[in-house]
């Protein structure tokens, strides 16, 4: 009880707000790190995921590789890459990108994969090329799942950048690493609260985006059961979700 009070007082203390190691600066750094991580991860994972979903090839490899990436212990990867790259943003950035790839990849290929076969056949029947099918049909229809993947990656990345402050970096993790050896628990708790708050806000933003990007046509005729009847394999997410 007391600790919580002290933590919130710590956050509200104007002395902790400004300056190069204040809350605003750390928050800004954390958001910046998260953004570049997501941009890099999207640039890598989205094309691969779309290709897999569109062609139906390489799915097994993608599942296995992204499963492997998921199991890497981030703290260990940060330390190890730090020894290769030296101190700086490179090592933790690489570790965080590795962490963000699997959900984005999974969102992309399962999103495209889940597009109704009939819809694609219809698109081809009216004379669309493969690229047009991907760009005008599959991508818009898959967008909610793709954004969902990025959303999930974003949460993990925000949470895990905290850990990377084991190396000399900014970000909200600084509050935890700096306070722990001094047993300054209010500051540690304050740091944790800020990370949680940032994660919640980011998640809220993505939830909104996810709603906005659903194509109008899909919204108009949305009957989710229709998908279940198709013979095509579905994304693990949508298949699992319906079960009790």
């Amino acid at each position: 009880m007391n600790q919580w009070g002290a933590a919130f007082l710590w956050i509200l203390d104007p002395a902790h707000l400004g300056g190069p190691s204040g809350i605003l600066a750390r928050l800004g750094e954390h958001v910046w790190y998260t953004l570049i991580t997501l941009v890099i991860a999207v640039l890598i994972a989205l094309p691969i995921g779309l290709a897999i979903g569109h062609t139906g090839k390489g799915r097994t490899v993608a599942v296995q590789v992204s499963g492997g990436l998921r199991s890497l212990p981030t703290l260990g990867v940060v330390t190890l890459l730090g020894l290769w790259f030296g101190i700086g943003l490179g090592a933790p950035l690489a570790a965080m990108v590795a962490l963000a790839l699997p959900p984005i990849l999974a969102g992309a290929y399962s999103g495209v994969d889940a597009v109704e076969r009939n819809t694609i056949d219809a698109a081809r029947a009216v004379g669309m090329t493969g690229w047009q099918v991907l760009g005008k049909v599959e991508l818009p229809l898959a967008l909610p799942l793709i954004i969902g993947g990025i959303r999930s990656a974003c949460l993990q990345v925000i949470a895990t950048w905290t850990v990377a402050a084991i190396l000399p970096l900014g970000g909200l993790g600084r509050f935890l690493y700096d306070a722990l050896p001094l047993r300054d628990y209010p500051q540690m708790l304050a740091g944790s609260i800020l990370v949680i708050a940032l994660a919640l806000v980011a998640d809220g933003v993505f939830a909104l985006v996810q709603k906005v990007v659903v194509p109008r046509g899909v919204l108009a005729g949305r009957v989710s059961e229709v998908r279940v009847k198709t013979a095509r394999p579905h994304a693990a997410v949508s298949a699992e979700a319906g079960r009790p």
């Binding site: 030296g86 190396l167 600084r174």
Partner: peptide
């Protein structure tokens, strides 16, 4: 330059670099 490894390999690397 805070490096939380108690003079471990990352600290050594920072000095070497």
């Amino acid at each position: 330059l805070p490096i939380s490894d108690s003079g471990g390999p990352n600290t050594v690397k920072a000095l070497v670099d």
